[in-house]
Design a protein around this nucleic acid. Structure first.
Lengths: 346, 346
DNA sequence: CTGAAAGCGCTTACAG
DNA sequence: CTGAAAGCGCTTACAG
C-alpha cells in the first residue's frame, strides 16, 4: 500500500546512537531518561520525520486511543439533513478529543444497525459516545448490553433518576419552564406544545413537563388538544402545526420542542396567513445557528454544546480510566428574539 | 484498561479444533479453506462473540483501514457553526466509508494546525479527504508536501485545469450561469454578486465567472461596484450587503455565492426595509436544508452531496490501490423558490 | 486444505 | 539511566 519503506523506532535509535527501547521511552515522556539523550532522540525524530506507529503502539498498550461517536437520528430524518444541533456537538466533541490526544471515529447508526457489536467490541475504540434523539426505550436494552460487555459509554440525553448509565444532558425541564413563563409574560394563555411528550422521548417529555407545570402554577389548565407529537424535523413541525389547525382549537402561542420543529411550524403558520408574533408567538429549543436567521428571528433555549461536548469526552475518559463518573445536568439559557415578542409587535 | 481478558483467534482455534492460522484464513475469506472448517470457525466466532483485533490486523497488513476527513473552515467561522453543507457531505462520506468497510476519522483543521504531519504520516489513515472553503492558494503547498510524502489525498473543491491533485467538485461555473440566466429571465438587470471573486477562492470565483460571462452575453456590462467580497458565513453576508448599500449603487437582485451568505443578506435586506423578492430578487448556492425554510424560501443551486461523498471516498480508495484517478466535475441543478420570483411576486 | 513459525512496530518488565 | 528480550494479536509465506 505504502511504497516508501517506513521509518521505525530502530532507525531513530540508530541515528541517535541509543537502543530502540530508549527511543520509545524518550518519546513516551518517561522520566527515567537522561535529558541529553532525549534531546538527541528528538532531533533524530525531527530529521527523519518519524511518527510512532499507532497500530503497534495501541496493540502493545491494549488501548485504542480512539473514541467512537455514534449518531442515531430519528429514522424519519433524511440522512442528508442531520440536525444542526448535532453538528455543533460534533465540533465540540472533535475538539475535546483532540485536546486529550484521542482520535474520533464517527458513525451514523442508520448505516450500521449492529453498531454495538461493530464498535466497542472491535476494539477500535476505548469507549463510545451516543448522540441522538432516537426512541429512548428502544435502545435501553442496547445500552444494557453494552454495559454488560464492559463497554464504556456516555450519552447525550435526558438525565433521569435511577439510570444506570452516564448521561450528560441539559436541564430540559427548566428550559420548558423558561419558555412557558416567557410566553405567559407576553400575555399568551393558549400555548400549544409541538413535540412528542412521552417517555419514549424523555428530553421532549421533560420540556413538556416544565411547560405543563408552569401553566398549572399560573392557574391554566393544560389542554391535551394543544399538544401534538412531532419528531425533530422541519417537516414534522409543519405537519404538527397542520394537525393543530385541523383540530380547530384556539391558540395564541406555539412552544416547539426543538428549533427544527419551530421552523417547520413557522413555515406552516405563514402558509396559513398567521403572522408571527402578531397572531401567534413562537419559541423553539436548541438555539441552532439558524434560529437567529429565520424571519422573524426565533426565541429559543440555548444549550451550551461546547461545554456539553467537553463534558461528554471527559466523562468517558474518566470511565475508561475506571474512575467514578456521575451524570451531569447542564444549565440552559433563554434567548428571546422577535418571534415571541407580542408586546412590542402587538 | 479493559478488565475482561480478550478473546483472541487462539481461543477460536481451540474451540473450533483448528490452528490459529486457519481461523485467520477463514475470517479473511481465503478461498483455500474447507467450507466445513470455515463454518466451524464461524460458529465459534459467534459463540464467543469474537472480533478481529484491528490494531493487530492493521499492523500486520501495514494498512490502517481508515480514512481521515479534514475539515478546514474559514478562520473567521465560529467552530460551533459549521457550514451545514459540510455536514451533509460528512453524512455521505461516513456512509460511503462504511460501505467500503473503512473507518472515518474526523478532524477539524482549526484544532490542529499541523494536520499534514499529524494525520497521514501517523499512519492512522490510509488517505485523507480534504474539505473546506479555506484559501486555496494558501494550502496549495501543503497539498504538494502531502503528495511528495506519498500521502493519498482527494479534495472537495474547484476542479481546475493543470491541477496535480485529485479534486471532486461541482460545476460552479455552470451554477453561476444558471442563477444569472434565471435572474435575467425574471427581469433583473442590476445583479449584485456577494462572495470573494479571486483565485484564492476558486469555487466562488468560478461562480462569479459564470455570472459575469452570462451578463456579458446578455449585453450587460459587469459593474465592479456590484461585487462585494464575503466568506461563507451569515455574518459575512450581512456585512457584504451593508457594504453594497453603503456604496449607493442601484441593484435589483443579489446572487450570493453561498446560501449562508444569502441568508445573511436576506436578514440585512429585511433590516433595511427591502422586500424579497419584490424589491430585490435573491439567490444562493449549495441548497442547504435551511434554504427551503427561510422566508421567503431561497432559490439556490443544488450540489448532490450524496454523490459527491461517494465519489470522494471511491476516488481515494482507488488512489490507495494505486489505480489512476481523474478529477470529477459534478453537475448542478437550479432550485427555484420564491426569493427570486419577481414576476409572480412583483 | 492445514499447521508451525516468523514478523508487523511498538512498550515494558527485567536486569544491569 | 540504558539495553536485550518478550510479547501485544494478528497475517502470510513456507512446508507439508
Amino acid at each position: 500500500m505504502r511504497e516508501r519503506s517506513r521509518i521505525t523506532s530502530f532507525d531513530i535509535a540508530h541515528r541517535a546512537g541509543v537502543s530502540q527501547s530508549t527511543v520509545s521511552r524518550a518519546l513516551r515522556g518517561s522520566s527515567q531518561v537522561n535529558e541529553e539523550t532525549r534531546q538527541r532522540v528528538l532531533r533524530a525524530v525531527a530529521e527523519l520525520n518519524y511518527k510512532v506507529d499507532k497500530n503497534a503502539s495501541n496493540l502493545r498498550r491494549k488501548h485504542a486511543g480512539t473514541l467512537a461517536l455514534l449518531l442515531s437520528e430519528d429514522p424519519t430524518a433524511d440522512e442528508s439533513h442531520i440536525n444542526p444541533f448535532f453538528l455543533s456537538m460534533l465540533g465540540a466533541i472533535t475538539r475535546a478529543c483532540a485536546q486529550h490526544d484521542y482520535d474520533l471515529l464517527v458513525s451514523f447508526q442508520q448505516f450500521s444497525p449492529d453498531w454495538h457489536a461493530d464498535y466497542a467490541e472491535a476494539h477500535k475504540a476505548d469507549g463510545i459516545i451516543l448522540l441522538g434523539y432516537g426512541d429512548y426505550l428502544s435502545y435501553c436494552d442496547k445500552l444494557r448490553r453494552l454495559a454488560e460487555r464492559g463497554t464504556r459509554a456516555v450519552r447525550w440525553g435526558a438525565v433521569l433518576p435511577g439510570q444506570g448509565d452516564v448521561s450528560i444532558g441539559c436541564d430540559n425541564h427548566a428550559g420548558g419552564r423558561l419558555v412557558t413563563e416567557h410566553l405567559l409574560a407576553q400575555g399568551c394563555r393558549r400555548i400549544a406544545f409541538l413535540g412528542d411528550a412521552s417517555s419514549h422521548y424523555p428530553e421532549f417529555f421533560a420540556r413538556y413537563l416544565g411547560y405543563a407545570e408552569t401553566l398549572e402554577q399560573a392557574g391554566i389548565t393544560v389542554d391535551p388538544a394543544l399538544q401534538v407529537d412531532a419528531v425533530s424535523t422541519e417537516s414534522a413541525g409543519q405537519a404538527a402545526l397542520a394537525t393543530l389547525l385541523a383540530r380547530g382549537v384556539a391558540f395564541d402561542a406555539v412552544f416547539a420542542a426543538s428549533d427544527l420543529i419551530a421552523i417547520g411550524a413557522l413555515h406552516a403558520l405563514g402558509a396559513h396567513g398567521l403572522r408571527v408574533p402578531a397572531d401567534v408567538a413562537l419559541a423553539g429549543f436548541d438555539d441552532i445557528a439558524l434560529a437567529g436567521f429565520v424571519n422573524p428571528p426565533l426565541t429559543s433555549v440555548l444549550q451550551d454544546t461546547q461545554q456539553a461536548g467537553r463534558i461528554l469526552v471527559e466523562s468517558l475518559l474518566r470511565l475508561i480510566r475506571g474512575e467514578p463518573v456521575a451524570s451531569t445536568l447542564l444549565p440552559v439559557t433563554l434567548k428571546v428574539r422577535r418571534s415571541s415578542l407580542r408586546r412590542e409587535a402587538g
